[in-house]
């Protein structure tokens, strides 16, 4: 156990776009909750005009340039490619992916790590749909939509994972590399494609409950077009996996 702890190192990839207010908080909280863990934070910024990169540079001075890495891209290129971009620069054997908008609280990181060590899983994914998990800031309609979408996906795809669209996950680096190369979707359908493909490939997936607090700063990105995208993604996965 002790030896394993020494061998496990974590790269935390955080894609950002206009997250100047949140990124410093996230980094602070990650350092607060991961005390005895070897990790690096890789911020993949898609050319935010709000000065996110300047904030990250200040953070580098506080926490050290080998702990907080800035791997920016010139313009907004999408989530899926942000992960593969971040992964190219990830030097550790585990990769954690999380959102920068504080809907994913870094206090759950230790439970991801613990779960992985206990079970030896290839992927540990956060889930809002089990005991101990949940959401804040969603009205009944949003919850209903979320549940309907989930039942539809569960019935059609049998993925063996309770929360398909949650992006807070820990991957073995090699597994993420393997899965990411076969995924083509964009946006949050990408999360679903990743986990369904991983499940089909027979990777060992475990779950930990997390709570999702809808964006504190900035605006949430959810609308009718997301539902259409979701259904398209579902149909795509149905015929390709």
């Amino acid at each position: 156990m002790e030896q394993q702890k020494e061998a496990n190192k974590y790269s935390i990839i955080i894609p950002t776009y206009n997250e100047r207010l949140n990124i410093a908080l996230i980094v602070y909280l990650v350092f607060k909750h991961l005390k005895d863990v070897d990790f690096e934070i890789i911020v993949v910024d898609d050319g935010s005009p709000d000065g996110t990169q300047e904030v990250v540079k200040q953070l580098q001075q506080v926490y050290g340039e080998d702990c907080v890495l800035l791997r920016a891209r010139p313009k907004k290129l999408g989530l899926g490619t942000a992960y593969s971009h971040g992964m190219k620069h990830a030097s550790r054997n585990f990769v954690v992916i999380m959102d920068a908008d504080l809907s994913h609280h870094p206090k759950y990181l230790p439970s991801f790590i613990r779960k992985q060590i206990e079970t030896g899983a290839n992927i540990v994914t956060g889930t809002r749909y089990v005991q101990g998990g949940g959401v804040h800031g969603w009205n009944l309609m949003r919850k209903l939509t979320s549940r309907r979408a989930n039942v539809l996906a569960q019935t059609l795809l049998w993925p063996g994972v309770s929360d398909l669209t949650e992006s807070f996950r820990l991957y073995k680096r090699a597994v993420l590399e393997d899965v990411i190369s076969t995924c083509v979707s964009k946006g949050y359908v990408f999360q679903m494609e990743m986990i369904v493909r991983a499940s089909r490939k027979g990777y060992h997936i475990e779950e930990v409950p997390i709570t999702f607090v809808d964006r504190v700063y900035g605006s949430s990105k959810f609308g009718g077009s997301e539902i259409v995208e979701y259904l398209k993604g579902l149909a795509y996965l149905l015929v390709t996996t």
Binding site: Y129, V135, R147, N150, V151, Q154, V216
Partner: peptide
């Protein structure tokens, strides 16, 4: 299934407070 899911889908206002 949607009904059961909705019932078990908990709201956690305390989490928002803790985050603040």
């Amino acid at each position: 299934m949607v009904g059961i899911g909705l019932m078990r889908f908990s709201t956690c206002p305390q989490e928002a407070r803790l985050l603040q």
